[in-house]
Simulated assay, not measured.
Amino acid sequence: MLTVENLTKRFGSNTAVDKATFTVDRPLMIGIIGRSGAGKSTFLRMMNRLTDATSGRLLFEGRDVLALRGAEKRAWQSDCAMIFQQFNLVPRMDVVSNVLHGTLAQRSSLATLFNVYPRADIHRAIDILDRLGIAAHAAKRAEALSGGQQQRVAIARALMQDPKVILADEPIASLDPMNAQIVMEALRRIHEEDGRMVIANLHTLDTARRYCDRVIGMRDGRIVFDGTPEQLTTGVARDIYGAGAEFSENATSTEIRDPVAAEEIRQAEVTV
């Protein structure tokens, strides 16, 4: 499905992504890990065409998306939805309207100007919110929701695009452990139930191991690890992060080990 060949991005004399190369033969949930500045976000932005590559190729289903221009590029950005760490919602707009923004690329300029949506799209947006456990908040302003709820609204907006690929750039970095797990569980369900490829930049090893089928480690712009969660040992992690023997995974863990808290998460997914 996806082939990345020598993908490179330079900003002046700085190389943010250095000849990244890998292939994905079927829809997977992939976690990309590495310290800040490793090139994770730049890679996702190139894939979504928010940033142009300096060189290399990125083929999806045999088509080089880096060569797309105009309407074809916009169509690819609909097929390749992006979720950001800071949600990128319109705070004073109601939740369902924020979700409906996922259809903007498919609508006329006049309809967009007057904020007019087909009834079928409105019903679909509410159905997606219900799937994510937040339909009860559809009429509220986005700014009235918690961080975890806002991120689920952002996921719902991405699903309104009906994408083939969902890219998530540090989707849980600003969330507490409980909301982080709710969001990651939502992304995992979307991957499993819809058969969509999900590629997420993550900052904790336990999250990558728990939710991803495959983990890619980046260091100084290069891919230094590409394997299964089981192969992501503490020793491998030290190499990815350039850390010494003092490296401890516990310092960045988002896992909730308390069974009572775990049950609260399950209830929250149903009722929140």
Rank of each mutant, 00 (worst) to 15 (best):
T54V: 06
M47V: 15
D25A: 10
A75I: 07
D213Y: 09
T21R: 01
G235C: 02
P163I: 13
V99M: 08
G39H: 01
R131D: 11
N250D: 11
G235I: 03
M46C: 14
F11V: 03
D64E: 13
M160D: 05
L232V: 02
L44T: 02
S41A: 11
A20K: 02
A125H: 02
V90E: 11
Q231V: 01
I190T: 05
L89Y: 14
D162P: 03
L159E: 05
R152G: 06
Q151W: 12
A208Y: 05
T204M: 10
V224H: 07
A173Q: 11
N179Q: 07
L50Q: 10
K40L: 04
N6L: 08
W76F: 11
Q161L: 09
T15L: 08
F11G: 06
R107M: 15
E143Y: 14
R196H: 13
P259K: 08
T103S: 09
I134A: 04
G133W: 04
T23G: 11
R219A: 10
T23C: 12
S41P: 07
E230N: 10
T254H: 14
R189Q: 12
G148R: 04
K19H: 15
L89W: 05
L59K: 15
R57L: 04
C80Y: 12
C212T: 04
S78Q: 15
Q151L: 06
G244E: 14
V260M: 06
I33A: 04
A16G: 10
V272E: 10
R119A: 15
G31M: 03
S55Q: 06
M160S: 03
T54N: 10
D127A: 15
G221Y: 00
S109V: 14
G221Q: 00
N6Q: 15
E5Q: 14
I223W: 00
R63C: 09
L7T: 06
R35S: 11
A53M: 09
V215S: 15
Q85E: 08
F225S: 05
R196Y: 14
L187F: 12
C80R: 13
A180N: 05
R63H: 11
E61Y: 02
R152D: 06
Q149W: 08
N14D: 02
G56T: 07
L2H: 02
Q161P: 02
Q149P: 07
L110I: 12
A105S: 15
N6C: 07
G244P: 08
I83D: 01
G34N: 03
Q77L: 01
L132S: 04
H123G: 00
F114Q: 04
D94C: 13
S13P: 07
D94R: 15
T252E: 09
M93R: 14
N98R: 12
G148I: 07
A38P: 02
A136K: 15
V270E: 14
P171Y: 05
R10N: 15
A251H: 08
D213E: 13
L167Y: 05
N88H: 12
V4M: 10
L50S: 06
Q181K: 08
M184N: 12
Q181D: 14
A111S: 14
L44R: 03
R209D: 12
T252G: 05
R214A: 05
V260C: 00
E249P: 00
V165Y: 07
T207H: 03
A168K: 04
A144Y: 13
L89C: 13
I32Y: 00
A16F: 03
D176G: 09
A200K: 01
F22D: 13
R69W: 07
E269T: 07
A75W: 04
A156V: 04
T103Y: 05
G195P: 05
R257Q: 12
L202T: 03
